[in-house]
Each structure stands twice: as structure tokens, then as C-alpha cells.
């Protein structure tokens, strides 16, 4: 994804067990904050098909 031009950080991976509720909350917070900081994504987002 990064290689074709999606900013790093837009795609994140985490391993959270079903028992790790605090970790889950932290991860969600972190990710949302990071994504908000990046601003809206305009690449690779399809609106109405661009056609002739």
C-alpha cells in the first residue's frame, strides 16, 4: 500500500486478544488519532465512477 502511494500509518496492524480490552481501547485511540492527524484520504477512494 505504501509503495503505491498511501501514506504510511493509514494501514496499521495490531494483535489484540479478546482478553486485552485495555490494549484494544488504546490501539483504537492511537489509530484514530494518527489517522485524524493525516487528514482525509483522497487516493484510492472511489466516488462516482469517472467516466466519459
Amino acid at each position: 500500500m505504501e509503495h503505491m502511494g498511501i501514506e504510511s500509518g493509514r494501514l496499521q496492524f495490531s494483535w489484540v486478544s479478546s482478553a486485552e480490552s485495555t490494549k484494544f481501547v488504546d490501539v483504537v485511540k492511537e489509530v484514530t488519532e494518527a489517522i485524524k492527524a493525516l487528514g482525509p484520504n483522497y487516493s484510492f477512494a472511489k466516488t462516482q465512477a469517472k467516466v466519459a
Binding site: 505504501e2 509503495h3 503505491m4 502511494g5 498511501i6 487516493s43
Partner: peptide
Amino acid sequence: KIETMKPQEKWQYF
């Protein structure tokens, strides 16, 4: 060469 580009440049390149 592509790896060193900024995200927007990469996007444009492809």
C-alpha cells in the same frame, strides 16, 4: 527509486 518518493509522488507515478 520509487521507495524514496513521497506518498503523493508515488501515487502520481503509478
